[in-house]
Amino acid sequence: MQQVKSEAFFAGARPVDPRTLPVPARRSPLQRVNNRFNRAFVLHGAAIRRSFMIAGLLAGATAVYAAHEPIGAGIGALSTLAQGGFADAGLSVGEINISGQTLTSEQAIFDALGIQPDTSTLAFDVEGARERIAELPAIDTVTVRKTYPADVTVSVTEKVPVARWRVDGITFVIDSSGAQIGEDGGAYSDLPLVIGDGAADDALVMIRALSHVPQLQEGLVALSRIADRRWDMIYDTGLRIQLPEQGVAQALVKLAAYQSEYQLLQRDLDVIDLRVDSVVAVRPTKREDPKKS
């Protein structure tokens, strides 16, 4: 390595008064903080941006939650005012036409519509009303329409009743599945009457079996379900015919043959027992002995 003599190093040097040298300016505290922030942002910019974004989201969510109740109340108030305005303008529901109902009361349909005195035709929810009416027990199909300025029309089709079911002292009208579709108000007295627990579920099968032997239906007032296992036929004369658990159709055909040949149902009998396949047992009506009276 080449040696440089001190004389050569200081060859161009000249004496300087230290007091004339420039003094560096001191940085203010704000500048120092700004420099530190810039240095941190360069090194950790992604993490800082994520932190700011999360904080902003939290602040926004807090503000929305704090304001949702006043906003909801304001929307509700505006809706109420709008309803009243539409009603005052002549758009309130004025006439409701209901057709097709027999088992379902008009009041039940009106309640399901949900129409209040200040309900406007414009705001009336047709689909919601249709769904509520469709849930009524006797309703099969329903159509709801609104006609401006002030009419609502409801047209229903009810389920087809097949029998009356008396249980616990109340008589219901039932459909083919055995479901209750309304109370019997006397309009369905021509339908077969079934009695007892479980009678509704099996009513249609028994009614269909009886349809093949019309000669056994005259004077028949009720079909009584016994222990939810078999049927008794009850006539207006007090005669009771006891049917078997199995082979009901065959027992009815046999009874129809006896009726045609011997007029068995017109005999002075209390009971005809068909529960045993190969036997027809009868119990005569008990008569009081006039000598004992």
Rank of each mutant, 00 (worst) to 15 (best):
I241Q: 00
A150D: 15
A87W: 02
E135V: 08
Q2V: 14
I54L: 09
H212V: 08
D88P: 01
D111Y: 03
A67I: 10
S51M: 04
A55T: 08
M233L: 11
V126R: 15
D17I: 10
R49M: 08
W165R: 00
G85H: 07
K254T: 14
L264Q: 05
A179Y: 02
R267K: 12
G198W: 00
G128A: 05
L264E: 09
S120Y: 02
S79I: 12
V167Q: 05
I234Q: 15
L220M: 05
L191V: 12
D270G: 06
V152S: 02
E106V: 13
A112C: 02
R19F: 01
R50S: 07
D175G: 00
A203V: 10
V221L: 08
G90N: 10
L103E: 01
I139C: 06
I98H: 02
D268F: 01
Q242A: 09
D268M: 05
Q246P: 00
R14Q: 13
Y262F: 09
G247K: 13
S120N: 08
T104M: 03
V276M: 07
E261H: 05
T20F: 01
V156A: 04
V4D: 05
F41I: 15
V213L: 01
E135R: 13
E261F: 02
A187R: 13
E245L: 05
Y262D: 14
G186K: 12
A89P: 00
G74A: 04
V167N: 07
R130I: 09
Y188V: 11
G85A: 12
A200G: 01
M53H: 04
L243E: 10
V167R: 14
P29N: 09
D140Y: 03
E69F: 03
A187Q: 14
F37Q: 11
G45T: 14
Q263K: 08
Q263H: 07
G219E: 06
L216Y: 02
D228W: 04
P18N: 10
E245D: 05
T121A: 10
G12M: 11
A47M: 04
G169D: 02
L252H: 09
R208N: 14
V160N: 08
G74C: 01
D151I: 12
A187D: 14
D232I: 12
G238R: 09
L103D: 01
S155G: 13
H212Q: 07
T80A: 14
T141E: 11
E106S: 15
Q263R: 10
G90Q: 10
A123K: 13
A129F: 02
D88E: 11
D228L: 05
R132G: 02
A63W: 06
S51G: 08
N34L: 10
G238N: 09
I115Y: 01
Q263P: 01
I272Y: 03
G85Q: 12
T153V: 13
V276T: 12
D197W: 02
S176V: 05
A129N: 11
R49S: 06
P137I: 14
E69R: 15
I226Q: 12
F41T: 12
E288V: 13
